[in-house]
C-alpha cells in the first residue's frame, strides 16, 4: 500500500474535480426531483382524475426498477428512438426521474398523514382548495417529512456513483483511473473515496436530525 504516492497533490486535485462533478450532479438532481416529486404527490393527493392514475402507474414502475437500469436505459436505449443525451445529462435525468418517483411517495404519505378535517375547516373559513393545500396542509406535511426527505437526498448523493458505468468522470471514476495505474494505490484510494462520501453524507444526516429536533 502506497499512501504517499496515492495521495499526491495531482491525484488529490483529480479526485476533488471528480467530487465536484458528483456534488454538481447531486444538487441539480435534488432540486429537480424534489419539485417534480412534489408536483406528482400533490396531483395524486388531490386525486385529479386520469392524470393521477397514470402517474400512479408510472411511479410504481420507476421506483421498482434498479437505478442502474434507468441510467443505461436513458443513455444507451433512448437513442434508439431518437432521444439522445450526453453522459452527464443522461445520468442527471435518470437520477432525477428515479428520485422524483421515490420522493413523490414520501411527500404523498406526508400529505396523507395530515388530518383531513383540517381541509374542511380551512375550506369553510373561505380558502379555496389550492390555498388550503398551500397554506395549511403542505407546511405541516413538509415538517413531518424532513427526515425521510433528507435521507432520500443522501441516497441520491450516493447514487451518483452509478454514473461511473456511463463514463461520467465523477468521484468513483476518477478513483478507478488512479488505482488502475498501480496496485499499491487501490486501498488508499478506495479509503479516501469512502471518507469523502461519508463526510458529506454524515453532515447531511446531522443536519436532518437538527431540523427534526427543532420542528418537534
Amino acid at each position: 500500500m502506497d499512501f504517499a504516492g496515492a495521495y499526491s497533490i495531482d491525484h488529490l486535485k483529480f479526485l476533488l474535480e471528480g467530487f465536484g462533478l458528483t456534488l454538481y450532479m447531486a444538487v441539480i438532481a435534488i432540486i429537480c426531483s424534489f419539485i417534480i416529486g412534489a408536483v406528482i404527490a400533490i396531483i395524486r393527493y388531490a386525486k385529479v382524475p386520469v392524470i393521477s392514475q397514470i402517474l400512479a402507474v408510472i411511479v410504481e414502475i420507476i421506483r421498482n426498477l434498479p437505478l442502474l437500469l434507468l441510467i443505461f436505459f436513458t443513455y444507451l436505449a433512448l437513442p434508439d428512438i431518437g432521444i439522445k443525451f450526453n453522459p452527464i445529462p443522461a445520468a442527471i435525468i435518470a437520477l432525477t426521474i428515479f428520485e422524483a418517483a421515490m420522493l413523490s411517495e414520501i411527500i404523498r404519505s406526508g400529505l396523507n398523514s395530515i388530518d383531513k378535517g383540517q381541509i374542511e375547516a380551512a375550506r369553510s373559513s373561505g380558502l379555496n382548495y389550492i390555498q388550503t393545500l398551500w397554506h395549511i396542509i403542505l407546511p405541516q406535511a413538509l415538517r413531518r417529512m424532513v427526515p425521510p426527505i433528507v435521507s432520500q437526498f443522501i441516497s441520491l448523493l450516493k447514487d451518483t456513483s452509478l454514473a461511473v458505468v456511463v463514463s461520467v468522470p465523477e468521484l468513483l471514476h476518477s478513483g478507478q483511473i488512479i488505482y488502475g495505474q498501480k496496485q499499491a494505490y487501490l486501498v488508499p484510494i478506495l479509503l479516501l473515496i469512502v471518507m469523502m462520501y461519508f463526510v458529506v453524507n454524515y453532515a447531511l444526516s446531522i443536519l436532518s436530525r437538527r431540523l427534526e429536533v427543532k420542528n418537534t
Binding site: I154, K158, S161, V164, L172, V194, Y197, N201, Y202
Partner: peptide, 13 residues
C-alpha cells in the same frame, strides 16, 4: 452511520 453514508457500489468494489 458509517455504512448508511457511503455508496453501495463503492462498498461492493
Amino acid at each position: 452511520e458509517f455504512f448508511r453514508n457511503i455508496p453501495l457500489l463503492v462498498i461492493m468494489l
